[in-house]
Design a protein around this nucleic acid. Structure first.
Lengths: 248, 248
DNA sequence: TATAAATATTCACGAAATCCGAATTTGACG
DNA sequence: CGTCAAATTCGGATTTCGTGAATATTTATA
């Protein structure tokens, strides 16, 4: 995690205000001031600045996240050409298996699903854009399994092992064992550790230089998902992706 | 446009740095410093702060937009339940017409496509998340046509009438006439005014209180798109959407 | 692998902008 | 039309930001 050098308090406060608006899903100025223990006039100046730069919009007396965040976010989502390659393959895999296939990347010790392919175009992947902790998601564990112990520990120091369901791994020792098993079998499993009723099989995608690009996972209800059936197909897709990336 | 009250220079500088990274699609620290005529040490402090808050990531010596922007952007995109209603209807309309249907909203005098439905799930709508000026897009014009002359002028004062193609409207008088025609016929047209070879038919979606929620447009190559065929279908869809929104 | 060059990071201080509280304005509701 | 709650403006004491110079680190070159 970063945490080096000097942090500018003014910018930090502005960004904390953005976080409050995000957490409260829209908020009034005085709510924000109360939440952060700042004077109304202070928050007003921050909101004015954020508004001028379009990160925030005002609707009546409520402040909301601006659509510029979506504009910038889409840029981040399409930043690497590799991502589009992955999306294409994920789409085909989803059609073949008739299950949901998600592509997640990691930054700052958490992971975010940036593409979700499924054969029902009516519904959007409901988890797209959501943050996940890495110890309780299939994608997360598949990526942790590729990292050094040191790097894994940095993540755990920062985020801990928050419990989401009964099945969430609760101790570091247990997680390290699970990562070892993941490396042995070649894919990760998530048996309702993040969400009740959701199981997933995950596999990291590695760059030619050995670093991790992200992770693909196939998810669905436990009664339907057979890891024996899915793992080989997923392996095949990941191999193809890695080959295509390497030969660009 | 906002522009009231006091602007915090520190936050403003941080956000300008984000804009530079966005414009350059990733940049080194000294590039950013040169671009904004700031000392390296200054930019360093800003980048440290932006990194701590996950808006920016460092890869080697390059700084890039962080995936947190995508996280926040998805929240902005799904902010109103009305948007999801629109998306469902847009999807069905796209299937019926076999053409691309986009939903755009406007903030700060420009518009952004937040959903793009088409029957080829292989390709993502390439314009999703991109900013468009309102005078040269079908969505934009359909929304301008609903606004007061005063509000339209604010937009033009801020953004002007940048020329994108040979067909782009170049004068205010011409635009006002076009908006009048739009109101008369009940839908807007974009005949290759923003992109060569792309035509579109647009219609604003209004809230029960008369304000504009956003705009739907159907787009495609001119040889294929018949406004006489599309307009009634689009009208039907918009009416259904407005009815559904009103009865929530 | 050693050396040079380019770039990132740290630091202390003068200059500048933030943050606050009080006063004013705006807007919603009866 | 009056009341109340919220946003907005303003001047000034205090914090902190922005800088150049020095150092460390990374990348390029021989």
């Amino acid at each position: 995690m970063p945490r080096n050098g000097r942090e500018l308090t003014t910018t930090a406060t502005s960004l904390r205000i953005v976080d409050v608006i995000s957490r409260l899903e829209g908020a009034q100025m005085s709510e924000i001031a109360a939440e952060l223990e700042l004077a109304n006039s202070t928050v007003h100046a921050h909101l004015t600045t954020l508004r001028n730069h379009e990160l925030v919009v005002k609707e009546g007396n409520e402040f909301h996240l601006g659509i510029k965040l979506f504009h910038l976010g889409e840029q981040a989502r399409h930043r690497k050409p590799e991502y589009e390659i992955v999306r294409q393959h994920a789409h085909r895999l989803s059609n073949r298996l008739n299950e949901e296939v998600a592509f997640a990347i990691t930054e700052h010790g958490r992971s975010v699903i940036i593409f979700d392919e499924n054969n029902d175009p009516t519904k959007e992947g409901f988890q797209v854009g959501r943050y996940f902790h890495m110890h309780n998601s299939a994608s997360g564990k598949s990526m942790l399994a590729e990292w050094s112990r040191e790097r894994v520990e940095e993540v755990l120091d920062r985020w801990g092992l928050p419990k989401e369901t009964e099945n969430t791994i609760q101790s570091r020792a247990e997680l390290y064992e699970e990562l070892e098993r993941t490396r042995e079998r070649g894919y990760s499993l998530n048996d309702q550790e993040a969400l009740e009723g959701l199981m997933a099989v995950g596999m990291a995608i590695t760059n030619p230089d050995g670093s991790v690009l992200g992770s693909l996972d196939v998810s669905g209800p436990p009664y339907r998902l057979s890891e024996e059936q899915i793992a080989p197909e997923l392996r095949e897709t990941v191999t193809q992706i890695e080959r295509e990336i390497a030969s660009r």
